[in-house]
Amino acid sequence: MAASSTAAVHKLRRLGKGVAFYALILGFCAAVLFPVYWMIVNSIQPLNHGMQFPPPLIPKEISFLPFITLFENFPVARWLVNSLLLAGMTTLIVLALAVLGSFAMTFLRWRGKAAFGLLLLMTQMLPEALVVIPVYAMYRNLGLSDSLPALSLVDAAFILPICIWILKNSFDSIAEEIYEAALIDGCSPLGALVRTLLPLSAPGLVAISVVSFFYAWNEYLFAVTLVTSPDIRPVAVGLASLKVMLDTPIDRVLAAALFFSIFPVIFYLLIQRYIVAGLSAGAVKG
């Protein structure tokens, strides 16, 4: 009797803990997602409802007109394709160079490592607004403005230093013996990098892909300066062009923002599985 009741208490306590845990997670996510929810609410209900006090927490009526006007009047699909290309190219450039850079910073021995690490961070310390003038001048002299691949080169340059540091951080957690073992097995340094280190640092690779993809997706200043023809406008510039001289159609901008945010989120969802894959790979290493 006594034994079973303590077991029941134990079980109850565990249940209570579980409920508290879920409540915590739920509360946390709700707080984080509320602005997003609010954006959805106000882009699908006529704006006038949101301009009451107190505003209704649940939409009073639903209308997709802001979305319809958006799709009918603006080349949304073209903006999307442009941004996907831009973000994709940027991510590839960053992945290639960041792997090499972090590899050199973590596993290779050479002089000037600290200086290199510092140099990388130094590149991040001047606001883009000040860097954009010389970059523009250079691109114009080279005849490179108004091209998405050229824009992706700039975007990649600006996010690469951070990505090298993040990936170095991930490489640091791999025991050096693993790399040395690969060398003893007859691999070249680059061979060891590709065959041994990369599979083990999957979470880090995922992290920097997401970082660079999101950066290129949202980057605005270079895009709006270097791209002038409407045909190759990426999403960020398209979104900004909804706001005009004397007016901002809030509902349409919210709708557009919502729609365009879906893609980075999907990208993250797709790639997130590899964080788990990376976890199991990490388990092998011990």
């Binding site: 984080v32 602005p35 997003v36 949202n218 605005y220 960020a236 923002a257 365009f260 945010s261 989120v265």
Partner: peptide, 11 residues
């Protein structure tokens, strides 16, 4: 939790 990050700053 990753969603806020994916949001364009303007929006």
């Amino acid at each position: 939790i990753a969603v806020p990050w994916a949001f364009p700053e303007i929006s």
